[in-house]
Design a protein around this nucleic acid. Structure first.
Length: 489
RNA sequence: GGGUCGUUAGCUCAGCCGGCAGAGCAGGGGACUCUUAAUCCUCAGGUCGCAGGUUCGAUCCCUGCACGACCCA
């Protein structure tokens, strides 16, 4: 019975031979590169005929007897290199011929253009900087298997140019948001990821444990309550961009760990936050599209301000003919929704019934950017009430292409009302609700010291990147999405 | 949690009605000094996801499980 063929064997043998001969590729600590692949290409007119030193990974090798063409890939692109036996000599040329796809080399020599017009480095000397012991995925079709693409993202990045492009755009998008806020006088801050009490969103937390303090800690589900403490502290304009953790299911729109932007502005309200949202998302779009228009999955989206402001209950009337504004109890809301297909709503609260109706019948239709405003107070325990309608809050959620991309409000700064809202949440928890916001005495103490009227905004950066890079799935814009461990070999 | 689909060589994929497991790329050997999905000759490479069942015989049909994708909740 023949041994199963191991792709790694010839490569391991070559490595061992080199190491025995005192030419261990892993002995090199650095390489003095003079130009990147992209620079050699763009600066060809001034570089032609002069020596350069480039480095990168061999992604294609074409041998022609006593000459070899190869493509070297670095972060800037690819550059063709050309090895000739009459230039390198028999021994060095022989070593070049033993290189494998995936090997990482440095190569130095003159820049020229081939007869077919390709900018090329004619190799005078080269050095192997890392031996690849495993083969690259197939060169033409790239790596298609989604599971391998996510589990071994480095392979995806190596062979799929589109993946590299997405994550470059992600970086540019987040950077543009940061620059926009800094230009508006916001201070970037870091608040605790490990929190003794979680809050700022409706979600179940991940719990962990600190040994030295002998205490349970939570991974934050939002930075909100800490950022508002900083507003109490007088910083007036603060923001944070960072990971939050929500212990919930995984699908095309949810990853348990995701990147949230939160910004707080003292002496501002939710109208100001709408303007800030329009400016921020517009800047993010400009960063990758150079315009306020972009296409998402075949839909043309226009981010030009102002975006329409539409009351939540009014939108529900528009799409279902059902008016929840007259309802006060869960029973009344349930009766109003009787004709709708909402699944089992028997034990649901009025707020949940309204939320479900919106999610199912309204949200998919919000293609162009829309601010849904005026959420019921029981769905918004941290938002300020509207003066004229105290059962509603000065809160909005922005929607684009049918996706919820954030949440914002005039922040509740009345410590007595805030305490009452927390107590409502505790009652809901006792009644069986899993996702409630725990009473945070330390946060209440901060409010009792006085927080100015403040506008707050949260934006889901992964979803925005997904929209702006035209990806159908959140996992395509998260480098290492959470997956189950692979089955044992 | 439910439904549908997928899992075959390192990668990308075929495999008909149940009857000896296939191709391209990658890999080994050989030819070739301007190629770029180089070309030509040649060779090797398989736990058909895992475990059962039906059958004379299973990659193929059935059941369960694992992982993934999509849809629904």
């Amino acid at each position: 019975m023949p041994e199963p063929f191991d792709q790694r064997q010839p490569r391991s043998d070559k490595l061992q031979t080199m190491q025995t001969q005192g030419r261990d590729p892993f002995a090199h600590h650095k390489y003095e590169r003079t130009h990147t692949a992209g620079e050699v290409e763009t600066e060809f007119d001034s570089l032609a005929g002069t020596p350069v030193a480039v480095c990168g990974r061999l992604i294609a090798i074409r041998t022609h007897g006593k000459s070899i063409f190869a493509d070297l890939q670095d972060a800037s692109g690819t550059i063709q290199v050309y090895a000739r036996m009459d230039v390198l000599g028999e021994e060095e040329f022989g070593r070049f011929a033993k290189l494998d796809l995936g090997d990482i080399i440095g190569a130095a020599g003159e820049v020229f253009r081939t007869r077919s017009g390709e900018v090329t480095v004619r190799i005078d000397e080269f050095i192997l900087l890392a031996k690849a012991l495993r083969p690259l995925p197939e060169k033409f079709h790239g790596l298609q298997d989604t599971e391998v693409r996510y589990r071994q993202r480095y392979l995806d990045l190596l062979v799929n140019a589109e993946t590299r492009q997405i994550f470059r755009q992600r970086s540019r998008i987040i950077q543009s948001a940061r620059e926009y806020l800094l230009a508006q006088g916001f201070l970037e801050v870091d608040t605790p990821v490990l929190q003794p009490l979680y809050g700022g969103a409706f979600a179940q937390p991940f719990t962990t444990y600190h040994n030295a303090l002998d205490m349970q800690l939570y991974m934050r589900i939002a930075p909100e309550l800490y950022l508002k403490r900083l507003i109490v502290g007088g910083l007036e304009r603060v923001f944070e961009i960072g990971p939050v953790f929500r212990n919930e299911g995984i699908d095309t729109r949810h990853n348990p760990e995701f990147t949230l932007l939160e910004a707080y502005q003292a002496y501002a309200d939710y109208d100001d936050m709408m303007a800030l949202t329009e400016g921020l998302v517009g800047a993010m779009c400009q960063a990758v599209h150079g315009a306020l228009q972009f296409a998402y999955q075949g839909q043309e989206i226009d981010l030009s301000p102002p975006w329409p402001r539409r009351p939540l209950l009014e939108l529900i009337v528009e799409h279902t003919d059902i008016d929840f504004s007259g309802t006060e109890t869960a029973e009344q809301a349930g009766q109003a929704a009787a004709g709708l297909d909402l699944g089992d709503i028997a034990d649901q609260t009025r707020a949940h019934i309204i939320e479900k109706t919106f999610d199912r019948y309204v949200q998919p239709h919000l293609i162009q950017p829309t601010f849904v405003i005026d959420y019921p107070v029981e769905m918004s325990p941290l938002a300020k009430r509207k003066l004229e309608e105290p059962q509603l809050t000065a809160r909005f959620e922005p929607f684009i292409a049918g996706e919820e991309i954030g949440n914002a409000f005039s922040e509740l700064n009345d410590p007595l009302d805030q305490r009452a809202r927390f107590q409502d949440q505790m009652r809901a928890r006792e009644a069986g609700a899993l996702e409630t916001q725990p009473l945070d005495e330390d946060f209440l103490a901060a409010l009792e010291h006085g927080m100015p009227p403040t506008g707050g905004l949260g934006l889901g950066m992964d979803r925005l990147v997904m929209l702006l890079t035209n990806q159908p799935n959140l996992r395509e814009v998260i480098l290492f999405p959470l997956l189950r461990p692979p089955p044992e070999s």
